[in-house]
Amino acid sequence: MQTFLDYLLPVSIAVIMFGIGLGLTVSDFKRVLISPKAVLFGLFGQLILMPLIGFGIAFAFDLDPIYQLGIILIAACPGGTSSNIVTYMLNGRVALSVSMTAFNSFLIILTIPFILDLAFSLFWTSSREINLSMLDTFRDVALTVFIPVLTGLAARHYFPIIVEKIRKPLRFILPGIMFVVFLLVLINEKQSGDKSLVEYWDLLLPALCLNVLVMFVGFFSSGAAGINHEGKYTIAIEMGLQNSALAIFLANNVIQIDGLSLIAVLYGSFSFFTTLIIAWLMKRFMKKKEAIINP
């Protein structure tokens, strides 16, 4: 099973990132250059605030070091295609969501090695040597994130009619791929673990805290920065719905420590639904507040 996952995970990540690329156009990047405030603040939230919150949660909960590392790993990953889907479902700023996903998918090539190196120095006490060079991580993430996104962008540019026909079904196919990956990893964790996955319920609380806390921090901090209503909950969605599939890939294929992917698997099992519900409540809150201010 593990050998199969070693091939399935990178292929799945590449397909998902290719799907994200199909939703991009050159105008998305032009929009960022013309009005970069929301994207820059969103990237600040994901690249700075999220890891800081992740470290705080890792220190706050009495967890095994491997699970503390798991919290940091999921906090270091970018938003995935699911965040774009949730934003679309709630009529948020889809272009902002896609732009944040794209730019962050490129920037993590530099940020993930730094964040994980810091996490290992703080939490990992084993004498085992961890091979986590920036060059290796750059290569693996580039092959599964950077190149597929650029390929999808090029495909939409040169074959717009074909891409337009498949983009809508991809909104359902890509989450389906992630669901299958999570299911297979869950089965693998159950087979290789020393206890049932049900007994890992105590890990759900820190994972849920990360999901909920970063959403509210993103929502209120972006509001304080002057981001408009739709931008506020779009940033909250992008911060709350991390690319769990990428975290699983990094845990199993790059870092290669047993059990490290468990937090990402648990996070991926509920974060789509909790993020959707919380963002919907944020949207209703804004509407009610606006109705009171402008009756």
Rank of each mutant, 00 (worst) to 15 (best):
G193D: 07
M17H: 07
A95K: 08
P148M: 01
F4E: 14
L197A: 07
N131P: 00
K195Q: 13
H157E: 06
F172Y: 11
I235M: 07
L260E: 06
V32R: 00
L63H: 07
W201V: 09
A76C: 09
L43S: 09
F59R: 14
S105N: 13
T144E: 03
A154H: 06
L90C: 02
F55H: 09
G79F: 05
G80V: 05
I237W: 04
W201P: 00
F272P: 05
I277V: 15
T125N: 14
V265N: 03
L96T: 10
K288F: 12
I237D: 02
T234P: 00
L241Y: 02
L210H: 05
K283H: 12
M134Q: 11
L63Y: 05
A38H: 01
L135R: 10
V185W: 08
L63R: 06
E230M: 06
I235R: 04
L107E: 05
T275S: 14
G152K: 13
I66Y: 08
L205A: 09
T81H: 13
M286G: 08
M100T: 03
L174A: 03
P78L: 04
I16K: 03
L213E: 00
F123K: 05
V86I: 15
S99H: 10
R167D: 03
K289D: 07
I277P: 00
A60R: 11
E189A: 13
E189L: 15
N91A: 14
L174V: 11
I112A: 09
A154G: 11
T125H: 14
S12I: 10
F285C: 02
A58D: 09
K289H: 12
F179S: 13
I292L: 13
G19H: 10
K37Y: 02
T275A: 09
G218N: 09
A207F: 07
I278Y: 02
M89K: 14
A247G: 15
I292H: 06
I255G: 03
G92C: 10
I74V: 15
F41W: 04
R284S: 04
T144G: 03
D202N: 15
K168Y: 02
I235T: 03
K37P: 05
N252P: 01
L241S: 05
F41Q: 03
N252C: 05
N104D: 15
S221V: 09
L22R: 08
Q68L: 02
L63I: 04
T87G: 13
T25H: 08
D64I: 03
P160D: 03
M17G: 05
K37C: 05
L132E: 00
G152N: 13
A264I: 08
A224I: 08
F159W: 10
V141L: 15
G92A: 11
G70H: 06
V86N: 02
I227G: 12
V149P: 14
F182C: 14
V11M: 14
I293G: 00
I112Q: 05
L40A: 15
L116R: 06
L69R: 03
V163P: 04
R167V: 05
L213V: 13
F29M: 02
C77P: 08
D28A: 10
G45V: 12
F270K: 09
A38C: 03
S222W: 00
E129H: 11
